[in-house]
């Protein structure tokens, strides 16, 4: 699994951090998404898929 984010689309809602805080963070200056782990381990896969599903700006893509 690979996590790809689009910083331009991101609206800093913070949903991805709620869903998977070991994988996503927010930049301090404006809240834009930061990926902590581009290749998250299998046990976080469901959380990461949920993060992509609840991103209101559709800024997260998962490559399985």
């Amino acid at each position: 699994m690979k996590v790809v984010v689009d910083e331009e689309k991101c609206v800093a809602a913070g949903q991805c951090v709620n869903a998977a805080m070991d994988v996503f963070d927010q930049r301090d200056e404006d809240g834009i998404v930061v990926v902590l782990d581009e290749h998250p381990p299998a046990e976080l896969a469901d959380d990461v898929r949920n993060a992509a599903a609840i991103c209101p700006a559709l800024a997260i893509r998962i490559e399985e």
């Binding site: 609206v11 800093a12 913070g14 951090v17 709620n18 805080m21 963070d25 927010q26 301090d28 200056e29 404006d30 809240g31 834009i32």
Partner: peptide, 11 residues
Amino acid sequence: RRMMTRPFTRP
């Protein structure tokens, strides 16, 4: 929006 997001991040 980006002028307003900083104080409201999840962290």
